[in-house]
């Protein structure tokens, strides 16, 4: 008996500090987000009025909300698959053992993912800059003069943002995949090689299936990454412009928060939160059941 008490005390000692701090600094504010979303609250200390689901009803009829939703969806659609495919491709390449200096390439490719998003956004807004930047000037070498600036044209702005996000994230997932591939026994590849499987076949038949668990995890990571990181990138690089053509959900939320519509802003956060959970669940279902260790 004494032993189990001591065990329980130890469990509590280990669990409780984290749990308490987690409740105070994350759970409590998160609950407040949900609560505020049901109020008309300017956030200025004026009395908040309970309005039920009114904020959500407003959202359904809000044109700009749909633009933001569409753009966030666009970023998810255009960045997730390319990022992961590029990551997978380079991971497979660099772990194949046939590449010299693979350590060098790994180090370099991983680099953008450790930079602050603020740094990346400032840097890329200068890269896309119509006169100071290198992209326009690079295209100019090939005689491709852009009539409108990349970040100032509704047909190019989201692509430009997507490329920045892929640039930032690909190396990160590459290193994750490399870690996974390294743990796959070389024997399997050697056996496949003897059977005459091409590198390409090895990739699809061995690497991808054995990495599936990691791939599933990274999909969830990247969905969250796209939703949150798009905020910084859009705020710094375009401010949602031109017009509203690069508004994303969290910048939309932010604009309402600073425009004395705290309740509405929090309602948007609730929606974003639900969307990210739903997407994660769906992608988890689509990619099959995860085998749980132990």
């Amino acid at each position: 008996m004494k032993k189990s008490i001591r065990r329980n005390v130890f469990i509590a000692f280990c669990i409780l500090p984290s749990l308490l701090l987690f409740s105070l600094f994350i759970v409590y504010p998160a609950i407040n987000v949900f609560k505020t979303s049901l109020y008309q609250d300017s956030g200025l200390g004026n009395k908040a009025v309970f309005i039920g689901l009114e904020n959500f009803k407003t959202m359904i009829n809000d044109e700009v909300f749909y633009i933001a939703l569409k753009n966030t969806g666009f970023l998810a659609a255009t960045t997730i698959a390319p990022t992961l495919l590029i990551a997978l491709f380079f991971a497979a390449l660099l772990t194949s053992g046939k590449i010299k200096y693979s350590n060098f390439f790994r180090t370099v490719f991983f680099f953008p993912s450790i930079l602050s998003f603020v740094v990346i956004s400032i840097l890329w807004s200068f890269i896309y800059h119509p006169t100071m930047g290198i992209v326009d000037s690079f295209l100019g070498i090939f005689g491709m003069e852009l009539e409108l600036p990349l970040l100032g044209n509704k047909y190019t702005v989201m692509w430009a943002l997507a490329i920045t996000m892929i640039w930032q994230a690909a190396g990160y997932y590459m290193v994750m995949y490399m870690a996974g591939i390294d743990s796959i026994s070389r024997d399997i590849y050697e056996a496949a090689e003897i059977d005459g499987a091409s590198s390409f076949q090895q990739f699809w038949r061995i690497t991808v299936p054995l990495l599936w668990g990691i791939i599933r995890t990274t999909i969830i990571f990247i969905i969250n990454g796209v939703i949150t990181n798009s905020f910084t990138i859009v705020k710094v690089m375009t401010n949602g412009g031109p017009d509203r053509d690069s508004e994303v959900l969290l910048t939309f939320m932010y604009n309402h928060a600073v425009n004395a519509n705290m309740g509405y802003a929090m309602a948007v956060v609730v929606v974003v939160f639900i969307i990210s959970i739903i997407l994660s669940v769906i992608s988890n279902r689509l990619t099959g059941e995860q085998t749980v260790e132990i």
Binding site: N46, K154, G241, P242, N255, A260, N261
Partner: peptide, 23 residues
Amino acid sequence: SGSKINISDEVYKPFSSIMNRQM
């Protein structure tokens, strides 16, 4: 009060589209 409209954004933001000849 409580309006979701930020009038200055509504009025001036579309000028980007006008200047781009997309509106």
